Simulated scan of single mutants.
Amino acid sequence: MSENLFDLTGQVAVVTGASRGLGQYFSRALGRAGAKLIVTSRKAGDCDAFVEELAGMGITAHALTLDVRDEKSITAFGPAADAVYGKVDILVNNAGCNIRKPALEVTWEDWNTILDTNLRGAFFVAQTIARGMITRGYGRIINVGSVTSVCGSAGLGPYGASRGGIKQLTMSLADDWGPHGVTVNVLAPGWFKTSQNRVMYEDEGWVQYLVERIPLKRPGAPNDLDGAVVFLASEASRYVTGQTILIDGGISVGNTRALVKKS
């Protein structure tokens, strides 16, 4: 074992949903820490340019296709991932989606799309990867949640249900797989600008309202997540499992300053 508890040299990490956004940030952080990467996207070829970018950074990476809404795709993925480098040590279950609507406008199709992607897909991807981890007696599974894993938000009913479900699922899997040397935790970002929400950040009034609610007075920047994902993937977190780590600038604590000023 390296004296550096955060060193991932010799480790193999799978990052799902890595064709854009947070999946790419997580991948870069793990690669810089020494991990070899398997990055996935729903459509073949969507991660090819990213693999080239990583190679330019000196990071070894391989792209695989994975549709987390398709049973056959997930079932085939576990053996395919193991075959790339001979093992998988780390899974970052990042693939997800959102449809922002008032609750009265949510359709059955909206609900199924979000829950099938964010919750059902995450479970079965973890299951297929965990088989190899359990056989080898070691693994780190990081389920990507959200501040909505612990806080409600208008317009995010199905999304919040999926992220709250991830928190509960993670605790169950941590209990199930802990005896086999596999830790399972949630990394829960707060408000980060991504392809899913970038339109909201074009509204200066909304951004100001958001910043007023965040104790650290700014939205998240991509590198704010680096330390958490490397920590949860490394030996530094070997006695941490079943936990939800919020990287949210403190927004989840609840901002009561406005109330105090009025009192």
Rank of each mutant, 00 (worst) to 15 (best):
G10V: 08
Q11S: 14
A13E: 09
T16F: 01
A18V: 09
A18E: 09
R20T: 15
L22A: 07
G23D: 15
Q24F: 09
Q24T: 11
Y25V: 13
F26M: 13
A29R: 06
L30V: 09
G31I: 09
A35Y: 01
L37R: 13
L37M: 08
L37Q: 14
I38R: 14
I38K: 15
S41M: 03
R42G: 14
K43L: 05
A44F: 14
G45N: 07
D46E: 11
D48L: 03
A49W: 03
A49Q: 06
A49F: 02
F50Y: 15
V51M: 03
E52I: 03
A55S: 12
G56K: 01
G56S: 07
G58D: 08
T65S: 05
D67C: 02
D67I: 00
R69P: 00
D70N: 14
D70A: 09
K72M: 01
I74L: 04
F77Q: 05
P79Q: 04
A80Y: 11
A81K: 04
A81L: 05
V84S: 14
V84A: 07
K87N: 15
K87F: 03
V88D: 10
D89G: 02
D89P: 02
V92Q: 08
V92E: 11
A95C: 09
A95Y: 05
P102L: 09
A103K: 03
L104I: 05
V106W: 01
T107V: 07
W108E: 11
E109W: 09
D110L: 03
W111V: 07
N112F: 11
I114S: 03
L115M: 15
D116Y: 02
T117W: 01
G121P: 02
F123I: 02
F123H: 14
F124V: 02
F124R: 09
A130Y: 13
R131A: 14
R136I: 06
Y138P: 01
G139T: 12
I142R: 05
V144H: 04
V147D: 04
C151K: 11
A154V: 15
A154E: 06
G157I: 07
Y159P: 05
A161H: 05
G164T: 04
K167R: 13
Q168C: 11
L169N: 06
T170Y: 06
M171Q: 15
S172Q: 13
L173D: 06
D175C: 09
W177D: 11
W177L: 12
G178N: 06
P179Q: 14
H180Y: 12
T183G: 08
V184N: 06
V184R: 14
L187V: 10
L187G: 12
A188F: 07
P189Q: 10
G190W: 04
T194F: 00
S195M: 00
Q196M: 13
N197Y: 10
M200V: 03
Y201N: 08
Q208H: 12
L210W: 10
V211I: 15
R213P: 02
I214R: 04
P215R: 08
P219G: 14
P219H: 12
A221Y: 12
D224I: 15
L225D: 10
G227W: 08
G227D: 07
A228H: 05
A228R: 02
V230G: 12
A233K: 04
E235W: 00
R238M: 12
Y239V: 12
T241R: 02
G242A: 06
G242K: 03
Q243A: 07
G250I: 00
I251M: 04
G254Q: 08
K261A: 14
K261P: 00
S263Q: 12
